[in-house]
Simulated assay, not measured.
Amino acid sequence: MGHVIRTEEQQAAVDGLQRFLTAEVEPIFSKEYRDTLVPKPLMGKLMRELSRFGLISGTVDEAHGGMGLDWLTMIMLFEEVATTSADLSVPVLINSFGAYMLQQLAPQHLRERYLPGLVSGELFCSIGISEPDVGSNVLEIKTRARRDGDHYVLNGEKTWISNGSYSDFLICTCRTGDDPRRGLTHFLLDRKEHPYEVRDIHKIAWNSQSTAQIFLNDVRVPATHMIGNEGEALKNTLSMFERSRVFVAAQGLGLGRRALEEAVRYATERKQHGKVIAGHQLIAAMLAEMATQVDASRLLVYRAAEMIQAGVPAEMEAAMAKYFACEAAVTVARQAVQIHGGNGVTREFLVEKLAREAIVAPIPEGTTQIQQLLIARALTGINAF
């Protein structure tokens, strides 16, 4: 839907990925595992296949075994995954940023041990930031890492952790000091060597992948498993948010685009009052509005990706993309249900699932309200939170 300007290489990459997603992925997430957890072996198989197309591997330089794709091409590919399945897009996103963090921040011995597995799709990672009382304000993290000789002992609880039950390792944000800004540090916990407890969370949607609570009870981790320098986790996390918000915005874009596609298909087939409903003016107006919102979302998402690729600060633009695209997904999915009428609330039609998924989209990586505060701060220089 809507014209997209791509290079020949980008178009070829997107076309190849689309064929794979249609043939191999669509049946899994729309039928076989529509609202149930995809088993790890099957999800791992999909990760390995997607990495060949540049998902996950694209965020990593060729020198470290990746494809080293530019951020705009990555977003174009990620949009296709999110359009096919929001659930599948989550482990792709988390593994991609786990790989990016390892490349950028991990000491050589951890990078050599874990990065190849992420790039190939053999390993899953989780990134543990959120806690029961900590969402958007990373400064309030309570999980502690206490130094004990050559190790740190970790205690705390993380929640809303994507890939939780799949994870082979966890990149965990912990408090190593009392300074709110300079007291946070990342550690890599190998699930076999530094066991942590995982409990999946059942949600309104996005249940075909794992979202979990993670409990850390006197988990001993070698000091050599520190990711980045001690006390620099806040700085490193905030620099990641700018990039990851563009990917979450692309999830909203994918959801809105799929809802539009389903609505157009239904409106051109369903007949009422002697003609297909697309021929009724109110339905036509709804479709036009939906298409405009989807295209506007894409323009904001692609702009932010291009700015990041160019090395231009894009905090405001990433926030705008995330805010607009995810809220647009809610509106477009709601309208798609309306166009389907009574059929739209049955499990026989995909828009029922898309509407539930769209409701979730504005929450991860900072709610819509947090994005609005970020935008306003960029405009005025005044911090409202």
Rank of each mutant, 00 (worst) to 15 (best):
K45P: 00
I308E: 01
D200Q: 08
A249E: 02
R356W: 08
R113C: 06
L350P: 00
E80A: 15
G177T: 00
V248W: 07
V294Q: 02
F78E: 04
G117A: 11
K353R: 14
E261V: 11
A23T: 13
G117M: 06
P107Y: 07
Q104A: 13
D133A: 12
A296I: 10
G58N: 03
F20W: 07
I227M: 09
T73E: 09
E348A: 14
A212I: 05
A267G: 02
A263F: 06
G342Y: 13
A12C: 00
I75C: 07
Q372S: 12
G342L: 10
I283L: 03
G177C: 06
S136A: 15
E365R: 09
K271A: 13
M47L: 12
L253G: 05
R356S: 14
K353Q: 15
R265G: 08
F124S: 00
E26P: 02
F53W: 09
G2W: 06
K275T: 05
T59H: 03
P132H: 13
T83H: 12
T7Y: 00
Q103F: 03
V198W: 02
F97C: 00
T224Y: 06
N217I: 07
G183H: 07
H64T: 08
H202S: 10
Q293R: 13
F78M: 04
M226G: 04
K158D: 12
L105D: 11
V38I: 09
L110K: 09
V119D: 00
F324D: 01
I129R: 11
S208L: 12
L105Q: 15
G149F: 05
T346H: 06
G256P: 04
Y152K: 01
R257K: 15
E79P: 01
